[in-house]
Structure formats: C-alpha cells, structure tokens
Amino acid sequence: MTKISLKVNGKMHEVECDPATPLIYILRNQLELVGAKLGCGLEQCGACAVMVDGEHVLSCVRAASEFADAEITTVEGLAKDGKPSALQQAFIDEGAAQCGYCTAGLVVAATALLEKNPKPDDAEIREALHEHLCRCGSHLRVLKAIDRVIQGSASHA
C-alpha cells in the first residue's frame, strides 16, 4: 500500500492503494466518481474513458500511480455550476443514449476532441470515437449531438 496524490476535477485527493491499482477502481470506489464504467477491463470498449491533461485516456488498465501530478477530468467534472456542459446537454436533447452504459465514455471522448478541435469534420469525429463500443446502437444520435454543439458554437462565433 502506498499513498498517491491525484488531482481529479480540480480537487486534490490523497488515496492509499496498491500502486498497481488501475485508475478506474480509485475513481469509482475511493473517490465515488462512478461516471467512468468498467466494460471490458482490457482497454477495448471505451466505457472507462477520462481526460488526463486534456488527452482521452482509458482508465481500466493503467495504474492510478501513473497519473500522480496530472489533471484528471471525469465526466462528472464536465458540468459547470451544476449545469451540464453544452455537449452533455446536446446528448440529453438528442436522446443520445439507449441503456447509457457507454455514454459517459463517449461524452468524455467527444469533449476531448472538441477541446482540441472545435470544428472537427466527420472523419475526425468518427476517428475520435471509433474505439467506443455501443451495443445498443446509439452512434448516430451521438454524432447528431456532437454536430449540434459544432453548429451551436458556429452560430455564436
């Protein structure tokens, strides 16, 4: 057991854990941030995605200790002042989820994309999301939700 410091959604946390513990268990169990989901535990489905220093990272395999000193943002950290982000609101407005188990991962992936590239083209969006599996088939609505945000930011520009 070792102590590690993690900065998650702008707050510092000290946690004691086996240093090999994958980040997702620390987030979900110690920090009670259950937005990231365990889908495969093999970095193959995308349900566990978080942002680390703005990069899209899967949290189910890599040890939490790798992320000391990094800025971790989970899907819970995207809302501002208790209000869903524009992208989260677009997911809600488009009904871009069926069961919703993969949704938080998709929201994180799309947020990471839009932060880097506010006006991605279709190929760039698909490339950014292509590792995110959805067994219910919500993909087209997810694309619509992202498009809604791109169009929205274009109209405000």
Binding site: N29, V34, E76
Partner: peptide, 21 residues
C-alpha cells in the same frame, strides 16, 4: 420529453447496479 435518467447518465451520476455503494 427528456428520457428518465438520461441527465444522470450523461453527467455520470450513479444509475446502474454496478454503481451501487
């Protein structure tokens, strides 16, 4: 209408049996 539970899901609030504590 906004579907039940969707806001919780999209903002990462507990929703699933896997999230129970």
């Amino acid at each position: 209408v906004v579907t039940r539970g969707l806001t919780e899901i999209v903002t990462g609030q507990p929703h699933f049996v896997q999230d129970m504590k």
